[in-house]
Amino acid sequence: MSTNNILQYKEFSSFVNISFWHELSSKKLDVLKLNDEPIPLNSHYTFSPSQQLDPFLCLEFNGFQQTLKQSQQHKSHASNNNNENYYNVPNRSYLVPGTLLNYNTAEDFKQSPKTKLFEDASKKIWSDIVLGFVDKDMTLLNRFILITYADIKNHQFYYLFGIPALLPPQPIQQFEETKSLLQFYNKDQIKSTFMNNPVPQYFYLVGGSENEPFEIKNFEDSLTANEEYFKAHDGSREDNIPTVGFCDPCSLPSNPGWPLRNFLIYLIVKYQIKRVRVVCFRGVSLSSSEIETNSIVLSLTLPEIDGNITPEWSGKSVGWEKDNNGKIAPRFISLASTMDPLKLASQSV
């Protein structure tokens, strides 16, 4: 097959709300001080209403807060016990957990073991897949690292994002071109399936023959049901290709966003699927015509992973955020105009 059929994904663009930098500054002064241990963070993504808006990974002032679920799992972390403010994912947005590594000096930042940090995050994703943690919590498929140096005195921040995607042994190919949702489902099906049910971040579709609505199955609901479905639908024949879906932050007409990547690895590892159809669900608004025109369906051939699958990841991963020249390079932001008391005073009217 020619390389033209390789499925291409649109990368995330990090979008750090300035409220996050404010929060980091005050944390650095009051709590972290010179501590440069890794700190858990939370971010989210949502649907993109326009091609002019990249798929954003959004980090805000509450990025340091844990979700209720996370704080229950780590009860030992005393620091969170008295804190009733949990990280809330906004409407129609999806959680992406991550890790912050904040260094004290420019030199430490530069010398930080970036490649290792990135590999560690990749390994964690892989072991969560293999050890079955993802089965119960699909948000573990996406993970980011943020490496920072906060020059608080000057209100300047240097930062670098990595959002690892595990690479399959060979690139994933499309066996048919990208199609619109309407080429697979009629308007009634789309309406009754996607409009009348909550759409989980990752799902698969059951039933739906003869214009009936589909049933949306959340991967997290029942592992047994998932296993049965993918046993019967392993994609080895034309008539047993499974249909899965995910909430897609991308809005390009023929490319999916980044969260599909590790999900496909999960399907290969967990269910050994040969071919799959993927609904890239784009629920920008609550209108079914929007969903019809924006959502796309991909038909994919999945490679096999040879040999024994162990929790130890030995493959490769990609996903450092690039600058405007396509180079992996730290970004810089100065917030003197919004943080410096002197400048603020001169602005206020």
């Binding site: 390789i6 994904y9 649109k10 990368e11 690479l167 690139p171 994933i172 990609v318 405007n324 396509g326």
Partner: peptide
Amino acid sequence: EEDPAVLSKN
């Protein structure tokens, strides 16, 4: 790694 599956903006 050079990844043919990345459609980055550039």
